[in-house]
C-alpha cells in the first residue's frame, strides 16, 4: 500500500493507540455522575453527633460576640418573621439549594449554625449540604424550642440538685438577661447596678481538628 511507504509502521501503531483510546472515550457506557461525596462517607458523617452545637455553647459565643458565627434559620419565612434567634439569616429549607444562598453555605470563613424549631429540618439541610461537601456547618441541638427552654426560660434547679446545676442555671439566667428577659429579683439588685458577677460557666468548646477531607469524589 502507498501509505506503508509514507508512514513508518511504528507511527501507524502510535496513531492507532491514540485513535483507540479516544474512540474508547466516546464508546464507554456513560452513567450518571455521583454528585457529592460517596454514600458511605455521607453515612459516617451523618451518624456522628459532631455536627451538633449545644444551646449553651451558642449562647456563650453570642455573648462573647464571636464574629465567626453565622446563624441560618431553615424554617419558612412566616415563622422566621414571627420569632427567630437574633442576627440570623433565613434560608427556607425548600430553597436551600438556590444559587443565591450558595455563598452562605459553601464557604469557609464562618461557622454556620443551622437551626429550626427542633433539629429535624436543620438536620435534613445539614445532610444535603454535607453531601455537597460544604464545610463548617453545624446544627443547633434541639433548635429554637430547646433554646427557649434552656436559655430564654431556664428552669430553676431544686435544692437537692448538684452544684453544677446551679452554676449552669446562673449562666443561663445571665444569658437570658443578655437576650432581654427580665426577672423580678433583678429589681432589688438593679439599684447598685448589676455588679453581681455571675460565675461564667466555661463551656469547653471543642477545638475541631481540621482534617482535609480525603477521598470524596
Amino acid at each position: 500500500m502507498k501509505t506503508k511507504k509514507l508512514i513508518a509502521p511504528r507511527y501507524l501503531f502510535l496513531s492507532a493507540i491514540l485513535i483507540i483510546l479516544a474512540g474508547g472515550l466516546v464508546l464507554i457506557p456513560k452513567f450518571e455522575k455521583h454528585e457529592g461525596i460517596s454514600p458511605e462517607l455521607l453515612l459516617s458523617n451523618a451518624i456522628s453527633p459532631e455536627r451538633y452545637i449545644s444551646t449553651d455553647e451558642l449562647a456563650d459565643r453570642y455573648i462573647s460576640r464571636d464574629p465567626t458565627i453565622l446563624l441560618i434559620d431553615v424554617r419558612d419565612e412566616s415563622s422566621f418573621n414571627e420569632n427567630t434567634l437574633p442576627n440570623s439569616v433565613n434560608i427556607p429549607l425548600n430553597k436551600l439549594l438556590d444559587e443565591n444562598f450558595d455563598a452562605y453555605l459553601n464557604q469557609t470563613a464562618y461557622d454556620v449554625i443551622l437551626f429550626s424549631n427542633d433539629s429535624f429540618k436543620a438536620n435534613q439541610a445539614w445532610i444535603l449540604c454535607n453531601r455537597l461537601g460544604y464545610k463548617n456547618l453545624h446544627v443547633l441541638k434541639g433548635g429554637i424550642n430547646e433554646w427557649f427552654s434552656t436559655i430564654i426560660n431556664p428552669k430553676e434547679p431544686t435544692e437537692n440538685m448538684p452544684k453544677t446545676a446551679f452554676e449552669l442555671y446562673s449562666f443561663r439566667k445571665a444569658a437570658s438577661m443578655y437576650f432581654g428577659v427580665m426577672y423580678e429579683d433583678q429589681l432589688k439588685i438593679a439599684v447598685p447596678k448589676k455588679t453581681k458577677t455571675t460565675p461564667k460557666l466555661v463551656i469547653p468548646i471543642k477545638k475541631k481538628k481540621k482534617i482535609p477531607t480525603e477521598g470524596g469524589c
Partner: peptide, 20 residues
C-alpha cells in the same frame, strides 16, 4: 409533632419585662 412551634421568644421577653 415534628417542628412543633414552641413558645414565641419575643413575646416571652416582652411579657417578662411587663411583669417586672
Amino acid at each position: 409533632e415534628i417542628e412543633k412551634k414552641g413558645e414565641n421568644i419575643n413575646q416571652f421577653i416582652k411579657a417578662s419585662i411587663k411583669k417586672v
